[in-house]
């Protein structure tokens, strides 16, 4: 905090202008703010984090549906800043909402679920990238394809690089399974969450087929 009261600065904790406030009080007030904001329809983006075997995931939804799944390596603060700039800055942390999403992801990682039927919001995608990203759910659980094959499936066999870009900018990884797309030479290819995450997702699905 910037010191704005140099003449009044006081070493005694009880007179500290930034004296700490009970976390329980702030948590209760935050919950009340969420409830009030929801009543007034003021939450454009609700988000929470979900623990998973590949690390914490940030999930963010609009009233339309799930708009973003992010890996910790992407830096959650940067992900939220991008959502604020691209969709709306009326963003609130809603730890007890988005339970359906959290449960679906839990089920997926436990091998109890092979696909997702969640409502999605494609606000972060457009054009050819959106076409590619929406097509990803056609790749069956436990199977893989290549960037080249995917380009051919979409009727644009020469757009291999564009398909690769679409996969690497997929705003809904895991849900739209870009981890099932490999390079034509058999190499793993890049992944937003890191190569080791891509490998674990492929291994998880292979083990549950």
């Amino acid at each position: 905090m910037s010191e704005q009261n140099p003449g009044l600065a006081d070493p005694l904790p009880s007179l500290d202008p930034a004296s700490p406030i009970d976390v329980a009080d702030l948590t209760a007030l935050h919950a009340r703010l969420i409830a009030g904001a929801k009543t007034e329809g003021l939450i454009d983006i609700a988000y929470r984090t979900v623990d998973s075997p590949v690390g914490p995931l940030l999930v963010a939804a609009t009233s339309t549906g799930l708009a973003r799944v992010a890996f910790e390596i992407e830096d959650f603060d940067r992900v939220l800043a991008a959502l604020a700039a691209l969709v709306s800055p009326r963003i609130l942390h809603t730890p007890h909402r988005l339970d359906i999403v959290a449960r679906a992801l839990d089920d997926y990682f436990a091998g109890r679920r092979t696909g997702f039927d969640l409502p999605l919001d494609h606000a972060l995608s457009s054009g050819f990238r959106e076409r590619v990203q929406r097509h990803l759910v056609q790749i069956p659980y436990g199977q893989t394809t290549t960037y080249g094959q995917l380009a051919a499936d979409l009727g644009s066999p020469r757009a291999v690089r564009a398909v690769g870009t679409a996969c690497s900018t997929n705003p809904l990884p895991i849900i739209q399974p870009c981890h099932r797309v490999l390079r034509g030479d058999g190499a793993l290819g890049g992944y937003l969450g890191g190569a080791h995450v891509k490998r674990s997702l492929i291994a998880l699905e292979a083990g549950n087929r």
Binding site: A18, P20, I21, L26, A81, A84, P89, R90, L92, H93
Partner: peptide, 20 residues
């Protein structure tokens, strides 16, 4: 829209001061 900062960050950063 002129302000593109996530609102939650403002609640976290300034919530305690506003409560004081």
């Amino acid at each position: 829209v002129r302000n593109g900062q996530p609102f939650e960050a403002a609640v976290q950063e300034h919530g305690p001061r506003v409560l004081r």
